[in-house]
Protein backbone atom coordinates (compact mmCIF):
# COMPACT_ATOMS: atom_id res chain seq x y z
CA UNK A 1 0.00 0.00 0.00
CA UNK A 2 1.09 3.60 -0.64
CA UNK A 3 0.28 5.69 2.37
CA UNK A 4 -0.75 9.32 1.87
CA UNK A 5 -1.57 11.27 -1.24
CA UNK A 6 -0.59 10.20 -4.73
CA UNK A 7 -1.37 12.41 -7.72
CA UNK A 8 -0.70 10.75 -11.07
CA UNK A 9 -0.70 12.49 -14.44
CA UNK A 10 -3.32 15.02 -13.44
CA UNK A 11 -4.79 17.03 -16.28
CA UNK A 12 -7.45 19.72 -15.81
CA UNK A 13 -8.94 21.81 -18.62
CA UNK A 14 -11.34 24.73 -18.51
CA UNK A 15 -13.67 26.17 -21.12
CA UNK A 16 -14.26 24.74 -24.55
CA UNK A 17 -18.01 24.49 -24.08
CA UNK A 18 -18.51 28.10 -25.12
CA UNK A 19 -19.81 30.80 -22.86
CA UNK A 20 -23.40 31.93 -22.65
CA UNK A 21 -23.15 34.47 -25.41
CA UNK A 22 -19.62 34.04 -26.62
CA UNK A 23 -18.22 31.93 -29.37
CA UNK A 24 -16.78 28.70 -28.15
CA UNK A 25 -13.09 28.79 -27.36
CA UNK A 26 -10.67 25.89 -27.41
CA UNK A 27 -10.25 24.31 -23.98
CA UNK A 28 -7.21 25.49 -22.05
CA UNK A 29 -5.22 23.07 -19.89
CA UNK A 30 -4.71 24.67 -16.48
CA UNK A 31 -2.88 21.58 -15.22
CA UNK A 32 -1.12 19.36 -17.70
CA UNK A 33 0.30 16.06 -16.49
CA UNK A 34 1.22 16.75 -12.88
CA UNK A 35 2.37 13.89 -10.63
CA UNK A 36 3.15 14.40 -6.96
CA UNK A 37 3.35 12.31 -3.77
CA UNK A 38 2.79 13.52 -0.23
CA UNK A 39 3.59 10.95 2.41
CA UNK A 40 2.37 10.97 6.01
CA UNK A 41 3.94 13.74 8.13
CA UNK A 42 5.45 15.25 5.02
CA UNK A 43 5.28 18.94 4.08
CA UNK A 44 5.42 19.44 0.34
CA UNK A 45 5.51 23.02 -0.90
CA UNK A 46 4.20 23.99 -4.31
CA UNK A 47 5.65 27.22 -5.67
CA UNK A 48 5.67 28.79 -9.08
CA UNK A 49 4.27 31.25 -11.55
CA UNK A 50 1.04 33.08 -10.86
CA UNK A 51 -1.57 31.29 -12.98
CA UNK A 52 0.49 28.12 -13.35
CA UNK A 53 -2.19 25.83 -11.88
CA UNK A 54 -1.33 25.56 -8.18
CA UNK A 55 -4.83 26.36 -6.94
CA UNK A 56 -6.29 24.04 -9.56
CA UNK A 57 -4.15 21.16 -8.25
CA UNK A 58 -5.27 22.00 -4.70
CA UNK A 59 -8.93 22.11 -5.67
CA UNK A 60 -8.55 18.78 -7.43
CA UNK A 61 -7.16 17.23 -4.24
CA UNK A 62 -10.25 18.24 -2.27
CA UNK A 63 -12.54 17.26 -5.15
CA UNK A 64 -13.79 20.71 -6.17
CA UNK A 65 -12.73 20.42 -9.78
CA UNK A 66 -13.08 17.34 -11.94
CA UNK A 67 -9.89 16.36 -13.72
CA UNK A 68 -10.04 15.50 -17.37
CA UNK A 69 -7.43 12.81 -16.89
CA UNK A 70 -5.22 11.30 -14.23
CA UNK A 71 -5.94 9.94 -10.76
CA UNK A 72 -5.65 11.08 -7.19
CA UNK A 73 -5.50 8.48 -4.41
CA UNK A 74 -5.27 8.78 -0.66
CA UNK A 75 -4.09 5.69 1.25
CA UNK A 76 -4.82 3.79 -1.99
CA UNK A 77 -8.44 4.96 -2.15
CA UNK A 78 -9.31 6.71 -5.40
CA UNK A 79 -10.67 10.18 -4.75
CA UNK A 80 -13.62 11.35 -6.84
CA UNK A 81 -15.59 14.59 -6.67
CA UNK A 82 -16.13 15.96 -3.14
CA UNK A 83 -19.81 14.84 -2.94
CA UNK A 84 -18.93 11.23 -3.69
CA UNK A 85 -16.34 10.95 -0.92
CA UNK A 86 -17.22 9.13 2.30
CA UNK A 87 -17.43 11.51 5.32
CA UNK A 88 -14.22 10.25 6.93
CA UNK A 89 -12.28 11.01 3.72
CA UNK A 90 -13.89 14.44 3.42
CA UNK A 91 -12.80 15.15 6.95
CA UNK A 92 -9.29 13.79 6.53
CA UNK A 93 -8.43 16.20 3.72
CA UNK A 94 -9.04 19.87 4.51
CA UNK A 95 -8.19 22.98 2.56
CA UNK A 96 -7.43 26.59 3.47
CA UNK A 97 -8.49 28.66 0.46
CA UNK A 98 -6.50 31.41 -1.22
CA UNK A 99 -9.22 34.06 -0.84
CA UNK A 100 -10.13 33.57 2.82
CA UNK A 101 -12.89 36.16 3.03
CA UNK A 102 -14.88 34.69 0.15
CA UNK A 103 -14.43 31.15 1.45
CA UNK A 104 -16.24 31.99 4.71
CA UNK A 105 -20.03 32.21 4.91
CA UNK A 106 -20.73 35.96 5.27
CA UNK A 107 -23.85 35.34 7.33
CA UNK A 108 -22.17 33.19 9.98
CA UNK A 109 -20.05 34.32 12.91
CA UNK A 110 -16.58 32.80 13.26
CA UNK A 111 -17.87 30.74 16.22
CA UNK A 112 -20.77 29.38 14.17
CA UNK A 113 -18.38 28.50 11.34
CA UNK A 114 -16.35 26.31 13.73
CA UNK A 115 -19.49 24.77 15.27
CA UNK A 116 -20.76 23.90 11.79
CA UNK A 117 -17.53 21.99 11.12
CA UNK A 118 -18.10 19.98 14.30
CA UNK A 119 -21.78 19.34 13.45
CA UNK A 120 -20.72 18.00 10.06
CA UNK A 121 -18.10 15.71 11.61
CA UNK A 122 -19.41 14.77 15.08
CA UNK A 123 -16.79 12.03 15.43
CA UNK A 124 -14.09 14.64 16.02
CA UNK A 125 -16.20 17.27 17.79
CA UNK A 126 -14.91 18.29 21.23
CA UNK A 127 -16.17 16.07 24.02
CA UNK A 128 -16.65 18.87 26.53
CA UNK A 129 -17.72 22.48 26.31
CA UNK A 130 -17.78 23.72 22.68
CA UNK A 131 -17.47 27.35 23.83
CA UNK A 132 -14.25 26.54 25.63
CA UNK A 133 -12.98 24.50 22.68
CA UNK A 134 -13.74 27.41 20.35
CA UNK A 135 -11.77 29.81 22.55
CA UNK A 136 -8.81 27.43 22.65
CA UNK A 137 -8.80 26.87 18.91
CA UNK A 138 -8.99 30.63 18.21
CA UNK A 139 -6.15 31.25 20.68
CA UNK A 140 -4.03 28.66 18.88
CA UNK A 141 -4.26 30.68 15.69
CA UNK A 142 -3.63 33.94 17.55
CA UNK A 143 -7.20 35.27 17.70
CA UNK A 144 -8.88 36.74 20.76
CA UNK A 145 -12.19 35.23 21.97
CA UNK A 146 -14.31 38.19 20.77
CA UNK A 147 -13.65 37.07 17.20
CA UNK A 148 -16.05 34.15 17.80
CA UNK A 149 -18.97 36.57 17.86
CA UNK A 150 -18.08 38.43 14.66
CA UNK A 151 -18.96 37.85 11.01
CA UNK A 152 -16.24 37.90 8.32
CA UNK A 153 -17.20 41.48 7.36
CA UNK A 154 -16.10 42.61 10.84
CA UNK A 155 -12.73 40.85 10.62
CA UNK A 156 -9.48 41.92 8.99
CA UNK A 157 -8.04 39.97 6.05
CA UNK A 158 -5.55 38.13 8.24
CA UNK A 159 -8.21 37.41 10.86
CA UNK A 160 -10.41 35.78 8.17
CA UNK A 161 -7.42 33.78 7.08
CA UNK A 162 -6.88 32.48 10.61
CA UNK A 163 -10.58 31.61 11.03
CA UNK A 164 -10.21 29.64 7.83
CA UNK A 165 -7.16 27.81 9.24
CA UNK A 166 -9.02 27.14 12.51
CA UNK A 167 -12.00 25.72 10.60
CA UNK A 168 -9.74 23.32 8.72
CA UNK A 169 -7.90 22.23 11.88
CA UNK A 170 -11.15 21.90 13.89
CA UNK A 171 -11.93 18.53 12.31
CA UNK A 172 -8.45 17.08 12.90
CA UNK A 173 -7.43 16.47 9.27
CA UNK A 174 -4.67 14.08 8.20
CA UNK A 175 -3.80 16.15 5.16
CA UNK A 176 -4.00 19.94 5.10
CA UNK A 177 -3.94 21.75 1.76
CA UNK A 178 -2.82 25.33 2.40
CA UNK A 179 -3.30 27.69 -0.54
CA UNK A 180 -1.44 30.88 0.39
CA UNK A 181 -2.63 30.30 3.95
CA UNK A 182 -0.28 32.72 5.71
CA UNK A 183 -0.05 35.44 3.06
CA UNK A 184 -2.23 37.95 4.95
CA UNK A 185 -0.37 37.66 8.26
CA UNK A 186 2.33 39.82 9.74
CA UNK A 187 5.60 37.94 10.17
CA UNK A 188 5.16 37.46 13.92
CA UNK A 189 1.67 35.93 13.72
CA UNK A 190 2.87 34.00 10.69
CA UNK A 191 5.64 32.46 12.79
CA UNK A 192 3.03 31.40 15.35
CA UNK A 193 0.95 29.64 12.66
CA UNK A 194 4.02 27.97 11.14
CA UNK A 195 5.00 26.64 14.57
CA UNK A 196 1.48 25.33 15.07
CA UNK A 197 1.67 23.46 11.76
CA UNK A 198 5.09 22.02 12.60
CA UNK A 199 3.77 20.86 15.99
CA UNK A 200 0.69 19.24 14.44
CA UNK A 201 2.92 17.46 11.99
CA UNK A 202 4.65 15.59 14.80
CA UNK A 203 1.74 15.39 17.27
CA UNK A 204 -0.99 14.31 14.88
CA UNK A 205 1.01 13.00 11.90
CA UNK A 206 -0.35 15.84 9.81
CA UNK A 207 0.76 15.99 6.17
CA UNK A 208 0.72 19.37 4.43
CA UNK A 209 0.57 20.63 0.85
CA UNK A 210 1.84 24.18 1.21
CA UNK A 211 1.24 26.49 -1.74
CA UNK A 212 3.07 29.76 -1.31
CA UNK A 213 4.82 32.57 -3.12
CA UNK A 214 6.92 33.30 -0.04
CA UNK A 215 10.12 31.39 -0.68
CA UNK A 216 11.49 32.30 2.77
CA UNK A 217 8.55 30.65 4.51
CA UNK A 218 8.76 27.68 2.15
CA UNK A 219 12.41 27.21 3.00
CA UNK A 220 11.52 27.17 6.71
CA UNK A 221 8.84 24.50 6.64
CA UNK A 222 9.01 22.38 3.49
CA UNK A 223 10.56 18.92 3.29
CA UNK A 224 10.19 18.83 -0.46
CA UNK A 225 9.35 21.50 -3.03
CA UNK A 226 7.60 21.25 -6.38
CA UNK A 227 7.93 24.10 -8.87
CA UNK A 228 5.12 24.76 -11.36
CA UNK A 229 5.03 26.73 -14.54
CA UNK A 230 2.30 26.85 -17.24
CA UNK A 231 0.39 23.89 -15.84
CA UNK A 232 3.44 21.68 -15.55
CA UNK A 233 5.65 20.60 -12.73
CA UNK A 234 9.09 21.64 -13.90
CA UNK A 235 11.22 20.59 -10.94
CA UNK A 236 10.87 18.68 -7.70
CA UNK A 237 13.56 18.37 -5.04
CA UNK A 238 14.18 18.33 -1.32
CA UNK A 239 14.00 21.83 0.12
CA UNK A 240 17.73 22.24 0.67
CA UNK A 241 18.58 20.83 -2.73
CA UNK A 242 16.23 23.17 -4.48
CA UNK A 243 17.59 26.26 -2.78
CA UNK A 244 21.25 25.35 -3.01
CA UNK A 245 21.24 23.65 -6.38
CA UNK A 246 18.25 24.69 -8.53
CA UNK A 247 18.31 22.78 -11.81
CA UNK A 248 15.51 24.14 -13.97
CA UNK A 249 16.08 27.61 -15.48
CA UNK A 250 12.69 28.77 -14.19
CA UNK A 251 13.59 27.77 -10.63
CA UNK A 252 16.86 29.65 -10.99
CA UNK A 253 14.95 32.69 -12.23
CA UNK A 254 12.60 32.53 -9.24
CA UNK A 255 15.43 32.34 -6.75
CA UNK A 256 17.25 35.19 -8.47
CA UNK A 257 14.17 37.41 -8.25
CA UNK A 258 13.58 36.68 -4.55
CA UNK A 259 14.42 39.56 -2.25
CA UNK A 260 15.94 39.37 1.19
CA UNK A 261 15.78 41.99 3.91
CA UNK A 262 19.45 41.61 4.64
CA UNK A 263 21.79 43.62 2.51
CA UNK A 264 19.20 46.19 1.50
CA UNK A 265 20.64 49.57 0.78
CA UNK A 266 18.50 52.51 -0.18
Amino acid sequence: MTAGLVISDLRVTFGGRGGLLRRSEPPVAAVDGVSLRVGPRETVAVVGESGSGKTTVARSIVGLVTPEAGTITYDDTVLGPMRTRPPHVQRAIQMVFQDPRSSLNPRMTAGAILREAWHTHPAVAPKGDWKQATRELLAEVGLDPTVAGRRPSALSGGQCQRVSIARALAVRPRLLVCDEAVSALDVSVQAQILRLLVDLKSERDLAIVFISHDLGVVRQIADRIAVMRSGELVEEATAEDLFTNPRHPYTQMLLDAALDLEGVES
Binding site: L194, D214, F243, L255, A258, D260
Partner: peptide
Protein backbone atom coordinates in the same frame (compact mmCIF):
# COMPACT_ATOMS: atom_id res chain seq x y z
CA UNK B 1 11.40 38.02 8.47
CA UNK B 2 12.31 34.62 6.99
CA UNK B 3 15.40 34.58 4.81
CA UNK B 4 15.32 33.20 1.28
CA UNK B 5 18.99 32.93 0.42
CA UNK B 6 19.95 31.20 3.66
CA UNK B 7 18.04 28.78 5.84
CA UNK B 8 16.45 30.50 8.83
CA UNK B 9 14.59 28.99 11.77
CA UNK B 10 10.96 29.96 12.36
CA UNK B 11 11.10 33.07 14.55
CA UNK B 12 9.86 33.16 18.12
CA UNK B 13 6.38 34.68 17.96
Amino acid sequence: VPAVHAKSAIADP
